[in-house]
Structure formats: structure tokens, C-alpha cells
């Protein structure tokens, strides 16, 4: 079973040289720590920055330079700044190669729910609906089961949707799964020490796993 860093590390292997990448808040943010040497990527922050650098050294924080999580950050050689309309323009026109975001639920036809729980204070969707509606390549980083032990990979999402039929790959603490164009989760890799039977047990949506799947290689 993977911890959060393990999930981030596995997702980092999906990043190719030259990619422009948008990382969501939570586990997706950790992916930046595991980008392999020799792979050049440009991170987009949707508040208006391409080329997001690391956190500043103490004393060098700049209130005018933050990421979409409102954290102080830095720029890098080659960075560019733009307004919010252009930021979502490059998202909608699919200039961003890869989007990595978290989810509360994903369904077997690629629907995603990650912004609202009825009965709880709703904070808003931020840029998530724009990203999932337009991105050509979305990886969801999420826990396979919720705190009650129930599957979050479902036949149909129970929570209000963020986007429909848009997710093609999910990485959890247990597995890497593709969502097939005709519907259903296809098991691609297992986390170290996790059995196919266990993955079957905790995947409520349709699962194609009869061919088995190799253990993932993280290093």
C-alpha cells in the first residue's frame, strides 16, 4: 500500500519531458517533488503563472507572488505571468499537457466529484470544473476507499459532479487504473504487497482485473 508520497511518486512517472502540467492541491502538489532528473516540465498555477518554482527562502517571501493554493512561491528562469482569462484560455485550448487533481469520487465512465458535499459548507469549485472539462490528459490522485472503508471508485458518483466522462487514469494507494472508453476500471498495476482480490473487493465500479496486473515499480 502506498502513502501519499508514494502515490505522488508513481504519478510523477507519467510526466514526460517538455510537458506543461497543472497540479491541484493536496497529493498532486507533492508530485512536483518526484519529477525525475532530466525531465523538464513547466508547472502552471492557474492564478496566472507558468514556471512555478519552489517556496522562497525565509525572508524572501513576496506577497505579490503566490500559487493557486495562495502559498508564497518563486518564479524560475523562463517563467511567465498572465491574467486569469488567459490562464484559463490556455487550459481550455488544451495547451496544458497534463492535469493532476484530487477527487472524492470517480465513476466507471470517467465522471468526477470533488467540490461539494451536500449538507457541508461548500467552498466552491475554483478552477476544477474548467480543468476537467477541457484537459486532454487528467490523472486523478485519490484514496481508494473513504474513512468508512467504502469504495470511492463507483459505478456512478453519488456526490454532485465536477465533470462528466473526463477522467482516464486513477492512481490510488492500492493501484493504477485506466478508465476504458467503453466504461469500467482496468487494473494496470498493483501497489507493492496488494493483491488483485483485495483491489476487487474495494472497487465498487466495474473492474477488469482478470488478467492480473504487475506490481508497480517506483524507483
Amino acid at each position: 500500500m502506498l502513502d501519499k508520497n508514494g502515490i505522488a511518486k508513481r504519478i510523477a512517472k507519467e510526466i514526460k519531458d517538455g510537458y506543461y502540467v497543472n497540479l491541484g492541491i493536496g497529493i498532486p502538489t507533492l508530485v512536483a517533488n518526484f519529477i525525475p532528473d532530466g525531465i523538464n516540465v513547466v508547472l502552471q498555477s492557474e492564478n496566472g503563472l507558468l514556471g512555478m518554482g519552489p517556496f522562497p527562502f525565509e525572508g524572501e517571501e513576496d506577497a505579490d507572488l503566490i500559487n493557486a493554493g495562495k502559498q508564497t512561491i518563486t518564479t524560475l528562469p523562463g517563467s511567465s505571468i498572465f491574467d486569469s482569462a488567459m490562464s484559463f484560455g490556455m487550459i481550455r485550448s488544451q495547451k496544458i499537457d497534463l492535469t493532476i487533481l484530487g477527487a472524492m469520487e470517480v465513476s466507471e465512465n470517467g465522471d468526477i466529484a470533488n467540490w461539494k458535499i451536500p449538507g457541508k459548507m461548500v467552498k466552491g469549485m475554483g478552477g476544477a470544473m474548467d480543468l476537467v472539462a477541457s484537459a486532454k490528459n487528467i490523472i486523478v490522485a485519490m484514496q481508494h476507499v473513504n474513512k468508512a472503508g467504502e469504495s470511492k471508485l463507483l459505478p456512478k458518483c453519488s456526490l454532485p459532479l465536477t465533470g462528466v466522462n473526463c477522467i482516464r487514469k486513477v492512481v490510488t494507494e492500492l493501484a493504477v487504473l485506466d478508465i476504458l472508453p467503453e466504461g469500467g476500471f482496468k487494473l494496470i498495476e498493483r501497489a507493492p504487497g496488494v493483491s488483485v482480490d483485495y483491489i476487487k473487493q474495494v472497487t465498487a465500479g466495474k473492474l477488469f482485473a482478470d488478467d492480473g496486473a504487475p506490481e508497480m515499480i517506483l524507483d
Partner: peptide, 12 residues
């Protein structure tokens, strides 16, 4: 004032 909402830094 330019208040910072999430002050994040890295160690030297």
C-alpha cells in the same frame, strides 16, 4: 498591507 494568506518557505 499586502497580507500573505499562506506563508510557505524552504530552509536554506
Amino acid at each position: 498591507e499586502k497580507r500573505i494568506e499562506q506563508r510557505t518557505v524552504r530552509p536554506r
